[in-house]
Amino acid sequence: MTIKELWHRLGSPRWFYQMMGPWGTGLGVAAALLLITGTLWGLIIAPPDYQQGNSFRIIYVHVPTALVCQSAYIMMGVAGFLFLVWRMKLADMVVKVTVPFGMVMTALGLFTGSVWGAPTWGTWWEWDARTTSMLVLLFLYFGLYALRQAIPRAESAGRACALLALVGVINIPIIKYSVDWWLTLHQPATFTLTEAPSMPAEMWLPLLVNVIGVYCLMGAVVISSLRTEILRRECNTSWVREELMGEPA
């Protein structure tokens, strides 16, 4: 299938619903396997850090959640752009279903970060650069959530949220830069695309497994909620009727 064909098919919620069922299940299974492996590996097999001791193990739950909530926001911005320009219904639904996922993940990332900060920095909350930009990200998610709730008409709510998500995505680099430059205490990023990680493999491998796992989880959750949303919006069409009647009760 060429990219152009895929593009046209993505315009059809029906095609997405029927195609993506197995994908959602597959990603869910993959996420479960990877997350269980990575978590056990990180908890039991990976060696403790020579400075931080065992509290270092929090990295295996903190970094994946903190990464995925930023990616989720960017994905939402891209989807918002697609919806505003091409009115692609599926993109609107992506914006809608990603907000709760991203909000939960951001809150979780902040919480685990705070728990990690207690033994490492000696405080539960520190106005450090990355902590602060995560907090701002949480506020951005709050804004999107509140805006969607406040607008009664679904079509308008979709466009308004798409626009706000896009504005947010343009702002995120500026926010990150300004905050980075104002408050810096965090240890440098564990994974960068340009350099090999500075920790030994036995420490970063389980982290990599969990990071991939949490992205699979995002895929599974987003696909599953998208399929629900499609059913809800297209409930008056004949294909949904056939689909539901065909399914075992």
Binding site: L35, N54, R57, V61, F111
Partner: peptide, 20 residues
């Protein structure tokens, strides 16, 4: 016990697992 860091480690893992 996690070398004295049990509270923190289990709090972080527990909350993450519960939320996910």
């Amino acid at each position: 016990h996690m070398g004295g860091h049990g509270l923190y480690v289990w709090l972080a893992y527990g909350s993450t697992i519960a939320v996910v």
